[in-house]
Simulated assay, not measured.
Amino acid sequence: MFSLSAEEIEVLKLSCQVATFSMIFSLIPALTIGWILARKEFWGKSLFETLVFLPLVLPPVLPGYLLLQVFGNQGMIGQYLAPLGLSLAFNWKGAVLASAVMGFPLLVQSIRLAIELVDQRLEMAAQTLGASAFSTFISVTLPLANSGILVGAILCFCRSLGEFGATITFVGNIAGETRTLPLAMYSLMQQPDTEPQLWRLITLSLSVAFFALWFAQWFHRYQKKQRGR
């Protein structure tokens, strides 16, 4: 059993903090967009879907560069946020934004598929009994889609945990501020005689991602068994 240094514990805490906030801040927009894609038909839907899922296929450095141009201290929006103390570039809050952008499509897709599997007749029955569309979504759709939503949230968390390209482009690799697990591993690879530390971080990263995904799959199977009774 290996012991972690204070620096490695700090990297792990920062990584989990960034991934958790990224997942939380993505959840409400992803639920909204996932429901729209699952339940609504409208002109331009294909274009809208393409824009939502585009970060999945872009080189990660590109979204990071675009974030820098928009939210950097001299960016289109960032220049107005900086005087208010809301600077996002080169700090952990910017790392949350970069990770959220890259993990958001995975969350939306999981939510969309989960909602599409919900029987619309149950939703219509609730509305026939007087429930509003929002009440139906909260009391019928969400409970029936919760396992798919959880899987999507954990996928978003794991994607955020492993985010590298957009993060290093937008917020840099600053120890104690933006150096998450992938950036810390990259830094160690550039230094001599750091293999033991590198393997500890690799083990940490694999362990957190493995147990998060394992829990998501276990919960999904558990929910299916409960509904099958």
Rank of each mutant, 00 (worst) to 15 (best):
F90T: 03
L37G: 02
L31P: 05
P182S: 05
Q120S: 14
E49A: 06
E41G: 00
L4G: 04
P63I: 04
F42D: 03
L67K: 02
L113A: 14
A175G: 02
G148I: 13
S15W: 05
E163Y: 05
F48G: 07
E123W: 04
Y80H: 14
P196N: 08
V171Q: 04
G94Y: 04
L66C: 06
L62F: 10
A145H: 05
M1V: 06
W214L: 15
V101H: 02
A98E: 01
G94D: 04
E10K: 07
T178P: 04
P182Y: 06
S207D: 00
E49D: 13
P192F: 09
K45N: 06
R200N: 14
Y222S: 12
V18H: 05
S135Y: 12
S5P: 01
Q79W: 06
F157R: 00
F219H: 12
A216D: 14
W214M: 11
L58V: 07
P105S: 09
A133K: 15
L81C: 09
A89I: 00
S26T: 12
S205R: 01
N146A: 12
K40L: 11
T203W: 02
F48S: 06
A100C: 09
G228E: 14
P59W: 02
A126I: 13
F21R: 00
L144T: 11
Q127T: 12
L12E: 08
V108C: 07
D193C: 01
M185I: 13
I36T: 15
A30R: 09
G148R: 04
K224R: 15
M189L: 15
A184W: 03
V96H: 03
T20C: 11
A131W: 10
L56H: 00
Y186E: 05
S87N: 13
L27Y: 06
F210P: 02
T167A: 09
L31C: 14
C158N: 15
P60I: 10
S87C: 01
L204I: 15
L27Q: 08
